[in-house]
Nucleic acid binder design. Structure first.
Lengths: 196, 196
DNA sequence: ACCTATACTAGACACTTGTCTTGATTAAAA
DNA sequence: TTTTAATCAAGACAAGTGTCTAGTATAGGT
């Protein structure tokens, strides 16, 4: 009869996500990954196809969670949901501890030398999804007749995406979500000012 | 009598900067660095103290060049100079080719696991300098009595820094400065709207 | 042409890397 | 208790890593 795993698969993947998020794909070695997750190198190879396979798995989980979570609220909401997204990004009380290391996708976009198509594809899709979420929110507001006429939705959604990404980088550089509090407040005010 | 170098030191350092910028510190090995720059491993060790030493050297040159260049104009200018900075960031004609790989400092901030104090220190200083440059520009405008009263300088300069950093990441993800054109236009408009 | 002294080549080195593998362990069903 | 079959430990492996080095090459002054 088969022997059960020493570590729960879901828990191990959560720990892998955390380790990749904090340390980065390149600087996290397989032995450190074993230490951090409890997944031994045999299971890493057999279950995930190796380090890269586990990384893709946890990246996919992360992207899906983001898309179904905060960005879903934005897509289905309006300016207030957008403002809330920004304000929440500086709220240590509600956020996972890992968020002071930025965003896994953004970190990966920067440390990625572009040769890994599987990673490129996912990063581009994620960035597009962020832009689309903001576009939906602005479009929802426009449909309700509550968006100021001078707001160029096409540009505004890319502007918002840029700001969100940038603030994640600043949070990471400081290892502190509070570092971006002034900027998120300012951004929330700009967003709210777009309401009629 | 000493033998002269096969490669010009300044040119070699320029090539090193380019390679680190595009590929990243972690993914660029010493042999590839030799290939890219013409600096052999003997000179790398003797002249720079190794790979890390060369990286710190070119990072310092890069940060100084940025500070004395575009951010100096911003520090000594006002809202128009800020707007121009953003618009220029999407202008392929005037920018070095490397800029479609983002910004070396930002890339480094993301791929850095935080254990290297020499790098941490430089990144933090650079981010502070960016914020200070925007603060100076806004303060200059205020001193002239031409900044709208409702603009919170403390928050606005951090907001601008966030946007600039984020747009560099988006440019890198796309490997194309044109990808941030809508966002820089929008940002420039926001900045210009702060003028009385 | 010769000499000096630095630069260069490229292999060596010790260590790390991700992957692979074998024998041991052991969960759990029978 | 025994058996089965999956998991585990951890060493092996080949390749790569950054650094070090010895012998060679050679620029340039004399």
């Amino acid at each position: 009869m088969p022997r059960t795993r020493k570590v729960d698969k879901t828990v191990a993947q959560q720990k892998a996500l955390s380790a990749f998020w904090k340390i980065g794909y390149n600087q996290l070695g397989v032995r450190a990954l074993e230490e951090a997750t409890g997944i031994n190198r045999f299971a890493l190879q057999k279950e995930y196809g190796g380090k890269a396979g586990l990384f893709i798995k946890v990246l996919d989980d992360y992207l899906l969670l983001s898309e179904n979570g905060v960005f879903n609220n934005v897509s289905n909401g309006g300016l207030e949901e957008v403002a809330t997204l920004f304000l929440m990004r500086a709220d240590n009380e509600t956020l996972p501890e890992e968020t002071r290391y930025g965003c896994l996708a953004i970190n990966t976009a920067c440390e990625n030398d572009g040769k890994n198509e599987e990673i490129n594809h996912r990063i581009m899709n994620f960035f597009d999804m962020i832009g689309d979420a903001f576009k939906s929110a602005l479009s929802n507001e426009k449909k309700q007749g509550t968006l100021k006429d001078n707001v160029n939705i096409q540009q505004a959604c890319e502007f918002l995406r840029g700001e969100l990404i940038g603030l994640n980088v600043v949070a990471r550089a400081n290892r502190d979500n509070q570092a971006i509090l002034p900027a998120v407040k300012f951004t929330a005010n700009i967003v709210r000012s777009w309401k009629k």
